[in-house]
Design a protein around this nucleic acid. Sequence first.
DNA 1: AGTGGGTACTTACGAAAGGTTAGCGCTCTC
DNA 2: GAGAGCGCTAACCTTTCGTAAGTACCCACT
Lengths: 129, 129
Amino acid sequence: MEVSEQPTVPAVNVKAPMCPSRGVLEHVTSRWGVLVLAALVERSYRFSELRREVGGVSEKMLAQTLQTLERDGFLLRDAKPVIPPRVDYSLTALGREAAEQVYALARWTERRTADVQAARAAYDEARSS
Amino acid sequence: MEVSEQPTVPAVNVKAPMCPSRGVLEHVTSRWGVLVLAALVERSYRFSELRREVGGVSEKMLAQTLQTLERDGFLLRDAKPVIPPRVDYSLTALGREAAEQVYALARWTERRTADVQAARAAYDEARSS
DNA sequence: AGTGGGTACTTACGAAAGGTTAGCGCTCTC
DNA sequence: GAGAGCGCTAACCTTTCGTAAGTACCCACT
């Protein structure tokens, strides 16, 4: 390809409000996007499997999230022409790179949740008095 | 502390809809939370510095995001009693752990944005025909 | 001396996103 | 033949979000 090279200062910057990277980051870090990507790190899932796996997600939001992530090239949609319909979702190479990072973040969050809850309690305590 | 120990299966699980870890992850991956944390990795900032640094954020959302992250124990708010008011925000140890991960994710996003855009173009192309 | 600008927020209101419920066509199970 | 499961989509409503303004105070400039 070699369309253009940015050696040190990339034209792409998440800090800039109009930069397309902003939108990409928002998709990856979206409420359900994070959980879908994290789930797909372990294995591929069908639609309704994902719906059960990712607790609390509605069908509408899951469908929307999957479409967004598919369009961004993060995951592959394999719709088999059988009855009942069967659609498998799996990560692309690009998607795996993103997913592994959000997976790590999700695991970290689980580990540190107790600390956060303690911090919240201390914060609220300091204000209630 | 040693309140409780989860050896292999943690009671904390982001996949469960009611789990508190879900809320923590949402704060960290929130639209402006990500960018604020990523910015604070490099150095501490004052309120209006952050507002300029994180392009497109409103004062309301910045204040809200900062309060949420402070309450979660991710960042420290140092309000100096001077005029004009001066408030410095910096990461705590806990916040730095989170911030470094979202920082890495933000940098990855910048690097891969071109690929995502290509994927989008291909996706749209395949549907328009 | 008075006008404008900077500081860190908060409050009110309209717009956009997200969630809830229902429906669809089809099939296999009970 | 009633019910459940499959992968969505469309309508509706609520919650969130962004936009604009207000606040109290001081400094620089005119």
